[in-house]
Design a protein around this nucleic acid. Sequence first.
DNA 1: GGAAAATACGACCGATTTTATCCGATTTTA
DNA 2: TAAAATCGGATAAAATCGGTCGTATTTTCC
Lengths: 134, 134
Amino acid sequence: MLRLSKRVEYGLIALRHFAAINDSTVCTAKEISQKYNIPHELLAKVLQKLSQARIIQSYQGVRGGYVLAHAPSKIKISDVINAIEHEKPMLAECYADGPASCIIFDDCTIRRPLGKIQKNINDFFHTMTIAEIV
Amino acid sequence: MLRLSKRVEYGLIALRHFAAINDSTVCTAKEISQKYNIPHELLAKVLQKLSQARIIQSYQGVRGGYVLAHAPSKIKISDVINAIEHEKPMLAECYADGPASCIIFDDCTIRRPLGKIQKNINDFFHTMTIAEIV
DNA sequence: GGAAAATACGACCGATTTTATCCGATTTTA
DNA sequence: TAAAATCGGATAAAATCGGTCGTATTTTCC
């Protein structure tokens, strides 16, 4: 319960790696997967998502790979999560998918108080950047 | 991702219900399940857990049921979660189960920074009580 | 021009977790 | 003694997640 997905973990590890080295050095999914002992195929998928979200820039072909597309301080944790996960990181489904997603929505009495915790978490993800995990 | 379990949701709804009515009125699992449209058997299991943790007191037999065992302001959200879930609500497995639970533990670079978020969440759960969700 | 190395993308499988249900036992009241 | 309720173990059903595979495309280098 309350777990981050492995995909997000791997994405953060990779982004921290990019942030910790020279900006212009391209890294391949293979390099990173070997260095941090992460399944290659899965990391590749995550990096593709980050690339699609313009968080990293990709170079195809031999000697290709990825580099950061922005300064680490410009990449929020929430950006990373949104890029990797299709669903927002919410404590309850109704926060992410609205009233229709919850059959007890009208009877629910804890949505508002839990919203405080939710806001707290959201703020944290929205404030913290990759620069702070290097 | 980052979801609370239904069990915890149901537990909080039930505890809020107890807190919102007269202290000495016993409520049955059936009543609560009907009022809030919660699966009866599942709620029953959750209430049993809360009873075992001495958060509510149970009365067996006809006209039995449950009442709060303490004032709402004395029941922390963290108490409720710990009673219902066997595993601590942590962002990553290693926080809950230690180094041996994560094969990339030694290579992991994000454990410390994520710990800040974890602490933030823990503090919230440890500070907020049932009194604040009534 | 061709081989190799890398990303791009979709489909799928298996394991685990979560949700929900079922059943029998015990307790207590009326 | 019957009914209503908790207790608790077992199990089934559903959803999620981690991981893998295969194929296509792009680019570099010889």
